[in-house]
Amino acid sequence: MSISVTHISKSYKKVKALQDISFEVKPGELFGLIGPDGAGKTTLFRILTTLLIANEGSATVAGFDVVADYKKIRSSVGYMPGKFSLYQDLTVEENLNFFATIFGTTIEENYDLIKDIFVQIEPFKNRRAGKLSGGMKQKLALCCALIHKPKVLFLDEPTTGVDPVSRKEFWDMLKRLQQKDITILVSTPYMDEAALCDRIALIQHGKILEIDTPQSIVKHYPKQIYNVRANNMYQLITSLNDYEHHHSVYPFGEYVHYTDNRTDFNPKDLIQYLESNNLSEVEIAKTVATIEDTFMELAK
């Protein structure tokens, strides 16, 4: 196993940041840790990168214990913390050179690993990192984390605050890296990114809600979800919440995702009910669950 976490718990003063977390990541896997801010993702990353010590439980990374063998882990993993953590006043090239030197290597030595990413930022190599756009910074940070050819790569919310185009490119890069035998643990608050991982763990309030492939997580959603829309969104939501048979009512873009707690639910009844509540243009259609639906159902 590339990463193995067994019964890890961690508390700060009053707050329980992590409660009894266990999971394993196979070599070469792209594993996603999906959860909102404050779910405990960063704490878990810091424990695995040897920056924090857990109160309970144990963990190994690349076969090394995170407490006893912390020095070995530090030279064999790459870590990209949540905040933009490069030297703003150093140029792209100087940043990369610096991180290469402190890991005892050179850019040339591992160039083929970062080549795909580096060519995109190379035109700006003499620009100070602080003057790069969000997407560029993120690419540079990834290069810096990869420069010593780590076995395991930890990416803590790499796509937060980055626009959709850069996000897409970033995930494409991760997919390519995976083919070079690097195990990747990535965290994100965006549920739509979950589908891009091999396996994911849904995490909230320091607890893991479920671990599986994104496909089976959605497949296991217990109910039929209906897309509902009408002329007035707010009235629609209030009416649905007042409907005695409702199981869940969540606005979902231009629709409301509705589930009913009856097995023999007939959408026509609902249309009738909604129209009796002065709503018009009512539409109801079946739809499939998303990771977000599952997350909300589990967190409920």
Binding site: G35, P36, D37, A39, T160, G161, P189, M191, Q204, N232, M233, Y234, Q235, I237, Y250, P251, E292, F295, M296, A299, K300
Partner: peptide, 21 residues
């Protein structure tokens, strides 16, 4: 609503819909 958990996020949008209404 960036980074907020999905349920709170929906409650937030409900508030927005209400204000708009």
């Amino acid at each position: 609503t960036g980074g907020v958990d999905p349920i709170t996020r929906r409650q937030f949008w409900e508030m927005i819909y209400k204000a708009a209404d």
